[in-house]
Design a binder for these strands. Structure first.
Lengths: 127, 127
DNA sequence: TGAACATATGAATAACTGTTCATATGTTAT
DNA sequence: ATAACATATGAACAGTTATTCATATGTTCA
């Protein structure tokens, strides 16, 4: 009379139906590809640090070299990537080229990411 | 051969000062590293598609295989990564193992990313 | 029990990515 | 024009990563 335990349920789970449902509610394949490309830019610690720094203040290349302790070449290469991804813009002042964020979404994405980290850090501290 | 090098005239822009300023206002090196690690998970189109699908509905592995047209092995490998990153969780029902998002921040990050894409897409359509 | 199904996993590989090194381009002052 | 400075860039190399293949584990059903 107690609860009867079903060791197996005859649930018919329809893959094709579920897949179809999800497909109808998903962004286009192309958009999801672009999205991954966007996050790829955020997926390197040198680049995140650059973006984070630029969210504080405009900086020239050598400032970033000083700040991050990376080689001038490395920074320059990463800045090019950020430039072609339209996440930063640059303006020349004499010998210097100053970089700044091109878009408010950049810091927004970084902020959300940090929020997530801090949140889950508090949740499961152990392990 | 200690050549006496004249350090050039003071410029209007001080690298060390700017770097110092930014350093004081930056998250810790460790946190920025973790942040990059987090975004790394979002930086593959297969994984983004998985997460996006799971933000709609719980799905089992084969649903995802159907939906994404990738091999069962590939999906499984990516799910493991998502699992160990604590971005998805799983529960077993008979033969199936159902996956779902483990955290609201996941869809939040995806949403912000998509927002950025759509925004900038509209801004500069040309080139 | 064995057969069929659902998922996981280790190893191998091909493709990609970030850094370094060497060098080039562009700018300013002498 | 030359030197010194600031930045950019191509090539090469080492390290990483996503997929595939083969196989293993776990579950249900006859």
């Amino acid at each position: 009379m107690a609860t009867e335990v079903f060791t197996h349920l005859p649930e018919e789970h329809d893959h094709k139906l579920t897949a179809e449902f999800a497909r109808d509610h998903l962004p286009s394949e192309e958009e999801l590809f672009d999205l991954a490309e966007l996050f790829k830019v955020f997926s390197d610690s040198t680049r995140v640090r650059i973006m984070c720094a630029l969210s504080q203040t405009e900086m020239c290349v050598y400032d970033l070299v000083e700040l991050l302790g990376a080689s001038q070449s490395a920074i320059s290469h990463q800045l090019r990537l950020l430039r072609t991804s339209r996440l930063v813009r640059s303006r020349r002042v004499g010998k210097h080229i100053f970089y700044s964020l091109d878009d408010d979404h950049v810091s927004s994405i970084i902020r959300t990411g940090l929020e997530h980290l801090r949140h889950t850090k508090g949740e499961h501290d152990h392990e």
